[in-house]
Simulated assay, not measured.
Amino acid sequence: MHELAITVIGPDRPGIVADVAEALAEAGANLTDSTMTRLRGHFAMTLICNGPSADEAAHSLEQIGLVTTVHEISPESADAAAGEPYLVSVHGADRLGIVAAVTRVVAAAGGNITDLTTRLTGPLYVLVAEVDLPAGSADTLAEQLAVAGAELGVDVTLRRAESELL
């Protein structure tokens, strides 16, 4: 069995998720992880699937008329350290370099960004990132993020992520 990383991008329309899921199921690919979103009129999705070869999956996706990529990947290492879960949020006027500056501070502290979303709504720019931090690094990172936020003219907060019930 192959593990595949798949991306799909195209103009948004009803039925994209169903079309992709059906094409993958017909090819024998089991969708294990995914993220999907609408970005200014375009639909983007990233999927991890188990199943057929990359060529078989790519062939099945050709029929849906979207831009797709399919790559075989190695399974995730079971011994990968997760760290402590935190949320970084940024609110303020839009300006060039917000994502670069904030994510560089997180990376310099040894943090791993596991999910990141940004939105521009009128003049307000919002960034929300889920991060895994090394044990005991949150207080120092919060101070460094506050400095970066002041330089950018935005509010940056770091808080421990709440456990989610599935």
Rank of each mutant, 00 (worst) to 15 (best):
1 M>S: 15
2 H>D: 07
3 E>A: 02
3 E>K: 10
5 A>F: 10
7 T>Y: 00
7 T>A: 05
8 V>H: 02
9 I>T: 10
11 P>W: 00
13 R>M: 00
16 I>P: 03
18 A>K: 11
19 D>H: 06
20 V>F: 01
20 V>A: 00
23 A>H: 00
23 A>S: 10
23 A>M: 00
23 A>Q: 00
25 A>E: 01
26 E>A: 11
27 A>T: 02
28 G>R: 00
28 G>D: 05
29 A>F: 08
30 N>K: 01
30 N>A: 02
35 T>E: 07
35 T>R: 11
38 R>E: 13
39 L>H: 05
39 L>K: 02
40 R>N: 06
40 R>T: 09
41 G>M: 02
41 G>A: 06
44 A>Y: 03
45 M>G: 15
45 M>I: 02
45 M>Q: 04
49 C>Y: 04
51 G>Y: 09
54 A>S: 15
54 A>G: 12
55 D>S: 15
56 E>L: 04
56 E>W: 01
58 A>S: 14
59 H>Q: 08
61 L>R: 05
61 L>G: 03
63 Q>N: 12
64 I>P: 08
66 L>K: 10
66 L>I: 06
67 V>Y: 08
70 V>R: 12
71 H>F: 04
72 E>W: 05
72 E>D: 14
74 S>K: 09
75 P>L: 07
75 P>S: 05
76 E>K: 11
79 D>K: 05
81 A>K: 09
83 G>D: 10
84 E>G: 07
86 Y>S: 05
88 V>M: 07
89 S>P: 14
91 H>T: 14
91 H>W: 08
93 A>P: 12
95 R>L: 13
95 R>M: 12
96 L>W: 13
97 G>I: 12
97 G>T: 14
97 G>H: 13
99 V>T: 14
103 T>Y: 08
103 T>H: 09
110 G>C: 13
113 I>S: 11
114 T>D: 11
117 T>Y: 07
118 T>L: 03
119 R>Y: 01
120 L>W: 12
121 T>L: 14
122 G>C: 07
122 G>I: 09
122 G>K: 04
126 V>A: 10
126 V>T: 14
128 V>F: 08
132 D>W: 01
132 D>T: 02
133 L>G: 08
134 P>H: 00
135 A>I: 13
135 A>Y: 10
135 A>W: 11
136 G>N: 05
137 S>T: 15
137 S>V: 06
138 A>K: 03
139 D>L: 07
140 T>I: 06
141 L>F: 14
144 Q>Y: 01
146 A>G: 14
148 A>H: 04
149 G>C: 10
151 E>W: 04
151 E>H: 11
151 E>A: 12
152 L>R: 07
152 L>F: 11
153 G>P: 01
155 D>S: 15
157 T>D: 15
158 L>H: 11
158 L>T: 10
158 L>E: 04
158 L>D: 12
159 R>I: 11
165 L>H: 15
166 L>G: 13
166 L>V: 14
